[in-house]
Amino acid sequence: MSFPIVRHRRLRQSANIRSLVRETVLTVDDFIQPIFVAYGTGVKKEIPSMPGVYHFSLDTLEQEVKEIVELGIKAVLLFGIPETKDAIGSSGFAEDGIVQEATRVIKKLYPDLLVVADTCLCEFTDHGHCGMVHTYERDGHVCGDVMNDESLELLARTAVSQARAGADIIAPSNMMDGFVQAIRAALDENGFSHIPIMSYSVKYASAFYGPFRDAADSAPQFGDRKTYQMDPANVREALREAESDVLEGADMLMVKPALAFMDVIRLVRDQFDLPLVAYNVSGEYSMVKAAAQQGWINEQAIVTEMLLGMKRAGADMIITYFSKDMARWLREA
């Protein structure tokens, strides 16, 4: 009787055997939970395009953070929605800015919870771009050029103010050339040489950001971000971007988005030995939530497989709006 020489199914025949030989495992330590913080009192407002994700005011933030800590999640990523906006995003680097105030609240309540501060200007500028803009009219339309070097000083001020407020990690997401070097120098000069930089090194100009721009009220008022965020068609460029950040002093690298860029995660992982972050972004989250609400998919199974894929591709940690859900599912497993 003939039979296969190799029987791969021997190692799949029971749940315990599959668990014993499993190569990639998700744990609660892998996840960073994003939080959107806004001014006001008593605010817990669900974001329509992101079911289960909310805007919190400083007084309602405590309950959210308490839940995150009790689930065993070790880090949060803060985004702020300011009361006022201007051309340079000054509320982003104000000492009493919303991200700075939220950081103080969290660190007072839970000193060991890691606060990662998103360092960008798009939420704080009245034009919605990630840096200073030179505006002009063309054929009756407002146009603008995002000024790279002039923006670096403002981003550095933002990072320093966030570190001064107690942020444990600075996460610059602006994609200006030279932003890591500018922020590293400013942090060091102001006594924050111990604060690591989690750089949004490889950030694509992606359609997957749509729900986030609703959540953060950060859609550009003219043009788009394709002159500074990467073309989704490019992969070799990702290595150039990551290498620049490594040379400038980044402590962690990031690929954003994650789901459509698994190949990029693997490529960056293979080329660099710094810790690597995958950002499971808003559009990826909202698609799954919408399909689950229709009963078309098994949400837990889909999310678990999706996040396993990101980790298998090489991510050491994952920023995801599913962090709390995954923490609960892992406890129940």
Results as ranks from 00 to 15, higher is better:
27 T>R: 05
21 V>K: 00
23 E>N: 11
40 G>S: 02
28 V>H: 11
45 K>H: 07
39 Y>T: 12
24 T>R: 08
46 E>L: 10
42 G>D: 11
30 D>P: 01
21 V>R: 00
36 F>L: 14
31 F>P: 03
45 K>S: 08
23 E>G: 07
37 V>N: 08
10 R>D: 09
19 S>Y: 06
33 Q>T: 05
35 I>P: 06
40 G>N: 04
13 Q>S: 14
24 T>S: 09
38 A>V: 15
32 I>L: 02
13 Q>G: 15
28 V>E: 13
15 A>H: 07
14 S>P: 02
50 M>T: 03
32 I>M: 05
33 Q>A: 03
39 Y>P: 08
10 R>V: 06
37 V>D: 10
38 A>D: 13
16 N>Y: 14
25 V>H: 14
26 L>G: 02
29 D>V: 02
12 R>M: 13
31 F>R: 02
21 V>D: 04
16 N>F: 13
41 T>A: 06
28 V>A: 11
29 D>T: 02
47 I>T: 09
16 N>Q: 14
41 T>M: 03
22 R>L: 04
36 F>C: 10
15 A>G: 07
17 I>C: 04
45 K>A: 08
30 D>E: 04
42 G>L: 07
21 V>G: 00
17 I>T: 11
17 I>A: 10
29 D>L: 01
16 N>S: 14
43 V>G: 05
29 D>A: 09
35 I>S: 07
47 I>N: 08
11 L>R: 13
35 I>G: 06
43 V>I: 14
33 Q>D: 01
19 S>C: 05
29 D>F: 01
46 E>C: 12
41 T>E: 12
46 E>W: 11
14 S>E: 06
22 R>D: 10
49 S>Q: 08
27 T>G: 05
30 D>K: 01
46 E>F: 12
39 Y>I: 06
18 R>I: 09
49 S>K: 03
28 V>K: 15
28 V>W: 11
42 G>N: 12
48 P>R: 00
33 Q>L: 01
30 D>L: 01
25 V>L: 12
43 V>P: 02
12 R>W: 15
13 Q>T: 14
49 S>L: 06
24 T>C: 09
15 A>M: 06
32 I>F: 03
36 F>I: 14
34 P>W: 00
39 Y>E: 15
41 T>S: 07
19 S>G: 09
23 E>P: 05
21 V>I: 04
14 S>A: 05
45 K>I: 03
42 G>K: 10
25 V>P: 07
47 I>P: 07
36 F>H: 10
45 K>V: 01
17 I>Q: 09
33 Q>S: 03
24 T>D: 13
47 I>W: 07
11 L>Q: 14
35 I>K: 07
13 Q>V: 15
43 V>K: 06
36 F>V: 15
25 V>A: 11
24 T>P: 02
24 T>V: 12
35 I>N: 08
26 L>F: 03
29 D>S: 08
38 A>G: 10
13 Q>Y: 15
35 I>W: 06
48 P>F: 01
28 V>L: 12
42 G>Q: 10
45 K>P: 03
28 V>T: 15
48 P>Y: 01
24 T>Q: 09
40 G>V: 05
10 R>Q: 08
50 M>E: 02
14 S>N: 06
39 Y>R: 12
29 D>G: 06
45 K>N: 10
48 P>Q: 02
36 F>R: 08
42 G>V: 09
13 Q>C: 15
40 G>L: 03
10 R>L: 08
50 M>F: 04
41 T>H: 07
36 F>T: 11
11 L>G: 12
33 Q>C: 05
